[in-house]
């Protein structure tokens, strides 16, 4: 399965939206790459198309034109069911607003992707608790989201995104709703737990304070990636895959 080690590669990606009869091109033939084993940060001003891009990479949104290879799959050629399966098994999501299920405990929330994939609740919960433990939430597994601080909620969301050991982790502004300290903590956890060989981690952010956690920064503006910067993040526990 050499292809699983492939990262995310987009070329000539285009996407437009019609809103109120006006056609607006949001992605304008964009090129973007993210490699396994790295944390790639996607930055840029609000409205430049970052969310649109990762929605397409996640298979949640179609593209109008271009090529998109995700983990060795030609994503744009998959049908709805295949996309669903692909997301269920291979992608983890972290959202700005956490998007936890309100009525479920932390552990139950984390177990959802496993249960959706057919794992029985007891086993799923066991794995969920272990995952929460790794993220320093071993004491909070039974709590409902509203009983947790926002930083803790986002950590629960990260646990949910990682519990099924995905090959691609997509985070959209994971620290935007958090104070500086919790934001820093969340990035540290992503850095130390989410980044591993073979896994692509893409974090959308326009939070300057967290740029230092990136192995690569791709800067977008007006529907295009306008600058790519590879950085040496030190110290890193993981061997870097060679980038261009």
């Amino acid at each position: 399965m050499a292809s699983t080690r492939e990262g995310v590669h987009c070329e000539q990606l285009e996407r437009s939206f019609d809103s109120a009869g006006v056609r607006q091109q949001v992605l304008k033939g964009l090129r973007f790459d993210a490699e396994p084993g790295q944390l790639t940060m996607l930055i840029g001003p609000s409205g430049c198309g970052k969310t649109t891009l990762i929605s397409i990479i996640a298979g949640l949104l179609g593209a109008d034109a271009g090529h998109l290879r995700v983990l060795g799959q030609e994503l744009l050629s998959l049908d709805a069911q295949q996309l669903l399966d692909f997301r269920l098994r291979r992608i983890g999501f972290v959202f700005q607003q956490y998007n936890l299920i309100w009525g479920l405990s932390a552990a139950e929330n984390v177990a959802v992707p496993l249960v959706a994939a057919g794992v029985q609740w007891p086993q799923a919960l066991e794995r969920a608790r272990a995952m929460l433990g790794q993220l320093g939430l071993g004491e909070q597994t039974h709590k409902l989201p509203r009983q947790l601080s926002s930083g803790q909620q986002q950590r629960v969301a990260i646990a949910r995104a990682l519990v099924h050991d995905p090959d691609l982790l997509l985070c959209d502004e994971p620290t935007a709703a958090l104070d500086a300290r919790s934001g820093h903590q969340v990035m540290e956890l992503l850095r130390s737990i989410a980044v591993r060989p073979g896994r692509v981690v893409i974090v959308v952010s326009h939070d300057q304070r967290v740029f230092s956690f990136a192995d690569r920064i791709a800067e977008m503006d007006d529907g295009l990636v306008v600058r790519v910067e590879d950085r040496a993040v030190a110290p890193s526990a993981y061997p870097m895959e060679s980038s261009r």
Partner: peptide
């Protein structure tokens, strides 16, 4: 809607 959409994003199908 957003909670259901989250489940759909995670990979829960329309039938579920």
């Amino acid at each position: 809607v957003k909670q259901f959409a989250t489940l759909k994003a995670i990979g829960v199908g329309n039938r579920s």
